[in-house]
Amino acid sequence: MMEEKISPYQLGMMIISYMAGSALVVNPAIAARHDAWLAFLLGWGGGMILLFIIIKIVMLHPTKSFVGILIDCFGNFFGKLIAIIYGWYFVHLAAEVIRTYSNYTTTVTYPETPLLFFSISYTLVVIYALKIGIETIGRISEIFVPFIVIVLIFTFTASLTSININNFQPILSQGLDPILKGGVATMILPFGEFFIFLMVLPNLNHQQSYKKTFLLAYLIAGCILFTVVCRNILVLGADMMARDIFPSHIVFRLIPVIDVAPLLDMNLIMAGVVKTCICIYAASKLIAEVFGLSDYKIFILPLGAFTVSLSMMVHGSVLEQATVAIEMWPIYSIPFQIIIPIILLMISVIKKNLPANFKKQ
């Protein structure tokens, strides 16, 4: 099978698209209400620490894929076992993303259309894009990211008449607990998900530029999401933002004269497709590597079908999914995003510093 390659620019755009993904719909920082911007900054900073851990792991294993890193650190059997568990996590994440966007569409835009219809529709687009190749996702992201920035600037400017700077006050009125809780949740969703790009990194055609690409994309994605959080607080206020499951939709609806809500729908559809593509690609590639197969694309269709089924089973309602995203998902993701990467880094550093004669033994 011909090896697929993407440029550093395409990788950066994919990272921004992925990070902006479901966080444009459900942002855990809103649990801190008018202090959501502080919770977001805390989560953004915590995610930066996780990013440096990932970069250091890659530096210690410059020629290895994520599966290869797991095998190097945990051995052949346990490394592959942990890789398969990560494969489940990627598929579960894809199902959550599909359900998020399907819930949004059926709640806001087409309330009389069955949820399953949108789950299948999104997934068919994802399967088609992945069958063409990962370069397709890079090209989609190249179009999507400038579009989302333009829409963000436009909506922020159009909302200036509705902005109330007093919505940031009173600061810390609820204490530190909501900020810490929202910060941890934000660090997990979306910033802690960055490690999934270890599955995409081998496709980079200029491997030496990955650190710069990772850092710039992370900072740009954070700036976009921070602007969204601040805009929603300034326009809606803490109470309305906390009560509404999709606050960005309300902001778009409040823009006078013209209906710009379809622009948000376009943003979310493109972001959802990109994020789901990367999740299913990572799962397919991981399974292929674990079983020593050269063609990962044979897994795309069955994984896509399974993802649709799983997306219909994971939650009973929109409110339940929003609650799980803030309360349960961060706890569930800690082993995948924090504990195992830290263990990988520790083992990698120890092995790096072992005497050469001891390594041979």
Rank of each mutant, 00 (worst) to 15 (best):
M187F: 07
Q208E: 15
Q208N: 15
F168A: 03
I148W: 10
F147S: 15
V151Q: 14
I171E: 00
A158G: 01
I165K: 08
P190W: 11
Q207I: 04
F194T: 02
A217V: 05
I233T: 01
L180A: 10
L215A: 12
I165D: 04
V151K: 14
F197Y: 12
I137E: 09
P190H: 10
L189F: 15
I148P: 07
T213I: 01
F191E: 09
G192N: 06
V228P: 13
I140T: 00
F226C: 14
F194K: 03
T161S: 01
S209W: 00
G133R: 00
V145E: 09
A158E: 05
Q174A: 12
K181N: 08
N205Q: 10
I140P: 00
I143N: 02
Y210M: 04
L152W: 03
F197A: 01
M187G: 08
T186D: 13
N203G: 09
I171S: 01
V184E: 14
S141N: 00
T213W: 04
Y218M: 06
G133Y: 04
N167E: 01
E193Y: 07
V200T: 12
I163R: 02
F147V: 14
A217D: 12
G222K: 00
A217N: 12
I224A: 10
L201V: 01
K211P: 10
I171W: 05
A217K: 09
A158K: 05
F226G: 15
I143M: 09
T157A: 03
I148C: 02
L215K: 12
V200E: 14
N205Y: 02
G182E: 06
V229F: 02
A221W: 14
L160K: 06
N232G: 07
T161V: 00
E135V: 07
Y210Q: 06
L204W: 07
N205P: 06
A217T: 09
E193G: 06
Y128V: 02
